[in-house]
Amino acid sequence: MSERREPRSFYPTISPTWWLKKRSYFMFMMRELSSVFVAAFVLLFMYELFLLSKGPETFNLFQESLRRPLFLLFYAIALIFAIYHTITWFGVLSRIQVVRIGSWTLPPIFVTLSAFGAWFAISAAVAWYFVK
């Protein structure tokens, strides 16, 4: 009777730069990276609001520093990533959320389009509430 040996785990070797080899791989990684920019923005935003507790001087000083070129560059890049996330998210949505009415299936493009419609409406409502 031979003793059974545990099989060794198999790890495929992946080159850490595989995602640079093809455009679609690269865009996939950029989509993943978008979440980092989004998280960085919400945390920066939260920190900005936290400074309200430190009084007007500190808060306004930080507000001014947020208008320095380096921060503006960050905001611009983060906005591009955020919008890229929105576009890809709504694209996937139409594949996850299939709308059937009786035996008829709504073409997926309409699911994506209505998500974009909701996005514009919500964005407009938030902006309107903020500036009114």
Partner: peptide, 25 residues
């Protein structure tokens, strides 16, 4: 989180970070 990031983050980011420097607000 993906839904919130898609729907609310772009507009909030723009209002908070870019609208004033761009002279829109």
């Amino acid at each position: 989180g993906g839904v919130i990031a898609a729907l609310l983050v772009p507009v909030t980011l723009f209002l908070d970070g870019l609208a004033v420097p761009l002279g829109l607000m």
